[in-house]
């Protein structure tokens, strides 16, 4: 198991957003977390990345406990996320944004006198080629298209050279073609870079298109976990989710 959560819970006052979820994510997997709105997907994500502290339970990464670590420490260990609302650097160029991630990952941010631009040229260009942003390298983050911002987000995330990549609604707000492209990209990255990917998504065609394993949350609790076929066949899932009001 690359990542494991053991009986993890998060309460906001009286509200129990995540309730004793135990789940393991194996190395190299493409793993989807699904569930109706308010099922606790985002909170669960936040517990893994360190944005929220768990009320109880443990988070293990490569067998080591990381429950209490702040976000930046987890990132150093190899857990990175993208945001549901695209979170980029509006006034940095595409190149500079990816460079920032690499500078941080390779621990050179406390270098004071050599020019930042001399660092990691090959790696940055490699990532930009991979996500298809090389031709926009010197464009500012806020002047590229919405789809490209998602790509940029992904590129920055790759810059941290993660082992575990968490994607929160990676195709949110995208056109059909853009969605196809991003799905292809995710598949490719998983194979070529040996990434483990954990993602949430409300578009079922995306989920069943690329996920190798699916976990279903409902009202904060894990109600199903398995291969796409198993999840599709689960009666409980159909009851609350697939066949239900949506």
């Amino acid at each position: 198991m690359l990542l494991e959560t053991q009986e993890i819970s998060k309460e906001f006052g009286k509200l129990r957003a995540v309730s004793r979820v135990s789940l393991g994510i194996s190395k190299g997997d493409i793993h989807a977390i699904i569930g109706p709105n308010g099922a606790g997907k985002s909170t669960y994500f936040n517990l893994i990345t360190g944005y929220h502290r768990a009320t109880s339970g443990r988070v293990l990464f490569k067998g080591k406990e990381i429950t209490g670590l702040p976000a930046y420490r987890r990132c150093r260990l190899g857990i990175t996320r993208s945001f549901q609302i695209t979170s980029i650097y509006p006034k940095l160029t595409v190149y500079e944004s990816v460079l920032m991630a690499l500078l941080s990952q390779r621990k050179v941010t406390l270098t004071f006198f050599s020019p930042a631009k001399k660092f990691f040229r090959e790696e940055v260009w490699g990532i930009l080629e991979d996500v298809g942003l090389a031709d926009q390298a010197s464009t500012l983050g806020d002047s590229i298209s919405h789809g490209d911002k998602k790509r940029l987000e992904l590129a920055v995330t790759l810059g941290t050279e993660p082992e575990l990549l968490l994607l929160d609604e990676p195709t949110c707000g995208m056109s059909l073609e853009e969605t196809e492209v991003i799905m292809g990209l995710i598949k490719k990255l998983s194979v070529e870079r040996g990434l483990t990917i954990l993602f949430t998504e409300h578009d079922m065609s995306v989920v069943f298109g690329i996920a190798r394993r699916i976990s279903v949350l409902h009202q904060g609790a894990l109600i199903a976990d398995g291969s796409p076929e198993e999840v599709r066949a689960s009666e409980e899932v159909q009851k609350v989710y697939l066949g239900g009001s949506t």
């Binding site: 990345t49 930046y72 940095l92 991630a101 990952q105 050179v108 004071f112 020019p115 930042a116």
Partner: peptide, 22 residues
Amino acid sequence: HSPFGHTVVAMRENSERTEFLG
């Protein structure tokens, strides 16, 4: 213009994102 300066600018542009970069 060093990596440190680059980090400082990135913090100005989006401190949350930068924190998640470690």
